[in-house]
Design a protein around this nucleic acid. Structure first.
Length: 112
DNA sequence: ACCGTGACCCCAT
DNA sequence: TATGGGGCCACGG
């Protein structure tokens, strides 16, 4: 019997991908919120699952950012993600952060 | 099996 | 606002 609070990797990944697919265009969700919505307790697992996506994936992986509203990817990939978001209307401030009060999916509030 | 390393997050100070 | 420490999970050496 699999533990309900710790589903196997396949279940976890499926839940994560399902939630990411629901993020509306022009909005973003955080790793932590995706994890919670998917019934998981690890935000890291979300990042791990997204990193495992094939290049041609239709999933809107770029709509997932960290708690600060910033992009967690490093190097050129970060600029790619930012370009994809800006193309759908998401704005970044001077410090490269997104206002989650404005663009966060479903009442996502930073700072507790 | 142990340890380090992440597309992370939360709390206390 | 900024650190430090702990929790979380998968992977690779």
């Amino acid at each position: 019997m699999p533990r309900v609070d710790r589903p196997d990797r396949g279940q976890a990944y499926a839940s994560i991908y399902g939630m990411v697919a629901r993020i509306p265009k022009g909005h973003v969700a955080t790793y932590g919120s995706v994890a919670r919505r998917a019934g998981l307790r690890s935000a890291r697992l979300v990042g791990h699952a997204l990193a495992a996506l094939p290049d041609g994936s239709h999933l809107p992986w770029h709509r997932v950012v960290n708690r600060d509203g910033a992009i967690s990817l490093t190097g050129g990939a970060a600029e790619h993600q930012r370009a994809l978001l800006e193309a759908e209307g998401v704005r970044f401030d001077m410090r490269g952060r997104i206002d989650l009060h404005r663009f966060g999916w479903d009442d996502e509030t930073p700072l507790r």
